[in-house]
């Protein structure tokens, strides 16, 4: 144990020193990316550079990252054990949480919508809005509220795949107009990006929420019997 800690300490110091040296002696980037992004902004369809990079200039990266999210939830679905979903067993079913939820839930939905819309001209966008949506869903579940439509496997799977499919579909649709994959015509870029972001928000929110829901809090014991927890001394 001591050897492990000493080894970890030495390794950590060495790597930190190397990283610090790399930060100090970093080379100046040859390509002036901020300027290139700024000069391409007018044809991107949005006004915020990060959203433009995410969904227009480097949308291929974003497409693959959405695919990674979908892959994660598919693997989690495959590893799930067959057990009934029982939100009332979450153990947090207290009246205070429910009362706070009644205030928080509408606010969270409004914030998610605002973040999605604001992404066009200030920090915000599909990833942030999707995270807020997922947080609302997790809170609902912690409060013991069951959402019936989330048990509909076909509906949930369609929702999970919606973002990636829309992204791919729009990316290929523009090929009909004779431009390369995922290149939006400047005239319609804003609308296309908004459609993609809307579906991405729903899918990201549903993905994160599903990953949480797939893990009911019981059935963890190796011996398959839910034994009474012994009081701690």
């Amino acid at each position: 144990m001591i050897r492990r800690v000493v080894f970890a300490g030495l390794l950590c110091l060495g790597v930190t020193a190397a990283l610090g040296w790399a930060v100090l002696e970093r080379p100046m980037p040859v390509e002036n990316l901020p300027e290139r992004v700024a000069s391409a902004m007018p044809e991107s369809g949005v006004e915020h550079p990060i959203t433009a990079v995410l969904l227009n200039f480097r949308s291929y990266d974003t497409l693959l990252e959405i695919a990674v999210l979908l892959l994660a939830v598919v693997v989690a679905l495959a590893l799930r054990e067959a057990q009934p979903d029982r939100p009332e067993q979450m153990g947090l079913d207290n009246p205070l949480l429910r009362a706070v939820m009644a205030w928080l839930l509408p606010l969270m939905l409004i914030v998610a919508g605002f973040l999605l819309w604001a992404g066009a001209y200030q920090p915000g966008g599909a990833f942030q809005a999707g995270s807020v949506l997922a947080a609302a869903g997790v809170l609902l579940r912690l409060a013991g509220v069951s959402a019936g439509w989330l048990d509909n496997a076909v509906l949930v799977r369609a929702g999970l795949a919606l973002g990636l499919l829309t992204f791919l579909g729009i990316g290929m649709l523009v090929m009909l107009a004779g431009v390369p994959f995922l290149t939006y015509p400047a005239a319609h870029a804003g609308t296309l990006i908004l459609v993609i972001e809307l579906t991405l928000t729903l899918s990201i929110g549903l993905t994160l929420l599903s990953l949480f829901r797939l893990n009911p809090p019981y059935a963890d014991d190796p011996d398959d019997s839910r034994t009474q927890e012994a009081p701690k001394p």
């Binding site: 990316l33 992004v37 990079v53 995410l54 200039f57 990266d61 999210l69 994660a72």
Partner: peptide, 19 residues
């Protein structure tokens, strides 16, 4: 000026890390 490309990578990276 601020380079938006790494920022865009990080924002997707955070969500992927959570997943």
């Amino acid at each position: 000026g601020v380079d938006p490309v790494p920022h865009a990578m990080v924002i997707t990276g955070i969500v992927v890390a959570v997943a």
